[in-house]
């Protein structure tokens, strides 16, 4: 069918493109300004492209402050985020299989508990969890950031995987069991390989959220050597805002780089993951 009006197309594309620019402006502005010399941050504030390029903002920012550089923060963040991704994949997939396929007692009740925690505000457990981890001497360690994720800490992931497993034909499980496979064997050899697309979605969300997390590091990581990028950047901001916007924005840009790379390669999984949350 041919479109009768091209006028509506013109309006549509003009609006959608102009709006894209508006949506991306803060991000482009951040990248652009990270290359501006300090004087230009204000004299040429709104522009996206620097008049003079100052590449030195990056090495200057990388050195951090007080003797601790961003290499430390990035190393910490990569370690924490990597562990969170592994923990989420392992714990959430096996728990999801248990809920989706095995008829144990009180399953319905426990499933209701699981669903109710999806909506539980984190503030309710912030204080008592802190007191617990403090008793365990876990303050200033990565444990409070990592351990909950090895214990199915994001119920949304379990829910996502349960939905996915329900779409895998049960006959596959049953055939394998008749062939003498144990339940764990079925999970490991049959279901896990089929779960790959859903696991990619979980891994990406886990990475994005853990990398971004600010509140947990803020509470638990006081000494500067263990701080993550988000927390390091905040302290860098407190130290440098108003004096060195260039290096500050350079490090801001750099802190988003892993997320941008991941988004570029896996945006389909993210979009589909988000879309399924509302539909099912």
């Amino acid at each position: 069918m041919n479109r009768r009006t091209t006028l509506s197309d013109v309006i549509y594309y003009t609006f959608v493109i102009a709006f894209s620019f508006l949506m991306l402006y803060p991000i482009l502005w951040m990248f652009g300004t990270s290359f501006k010399p300090e004087t230009e941050v204000f004299s040429n504030a709104a522009s996206l492209i620097p008049m003079d390029w100052d590449w030195l903002n990056y090495p200057e920012g990388w050195d951090g402050f007080g003797g601790v550089g961003f290499d430390v923060f990035f190393r910490n963040s990569l370690f924490v985020t990597g562990s969170v991704v592994i923990g989420s994949l392992l714990s959430c997939s096996i728990v999801a299989y248990g809920f989706a396929r095995i008829n144990f007692r009180f399953r319905k009740l426990l499933f209701a508990c699981l669903i109710s925690t999806v909506l539980l505000p984190i503030q309710i457990i912030l204080v008592p969890q802190y007191l617990l981890f403090e008793q365990l001497n876990w303050v200033n360690t990565f444990y409070p950031l990592i351990v909950p994720h090895f214990l199915g800490g994001t119920p949304f992931f379990i829910f996502l995987l349960i939905q996915f497993i329900r779409g895998i034909p049960r006959e596959l499980d049953e055939a394998a069991i008749i062939d003498g496979c144990s339940r764990f064997g079925v999970f490991w050899r049959i279901v896990l390989p089929l779960l790959k697309p859903a696991l990619v979605t979980v891994a990406i969300f886990a990475f994005m959220w853990s990398w971004d997390d600010f509140l947990t590091p803020l509470i638990y990581l006081n000494s500067v050597e263990v701080q993550t990028v988000s927390l390091g950047l905040r302290n860098f901001m407190d130290a440098k805002a108003g004096t060195s916007w260039g290096p500050l924005l350079a490090m801001s840009s750099l802190s988003l780089l892993p997320q941008f790379i991941l988004f570029l390669f896996f945006q389909r999984y993210l979009v589909e993951g988000i879309a399924t949350t509302g539909i099912k």
Binding site: D212, F214, L233, S255, Q259, L270, I274
Partner: peptide, 15 residues
Amino acid sequence: YVPSIIGGSVAISVV
């Protein structure tokens, strides 16, 4: 969708 991913970050707060 990009802002939804990075909107909660410290970097965007700096911006």
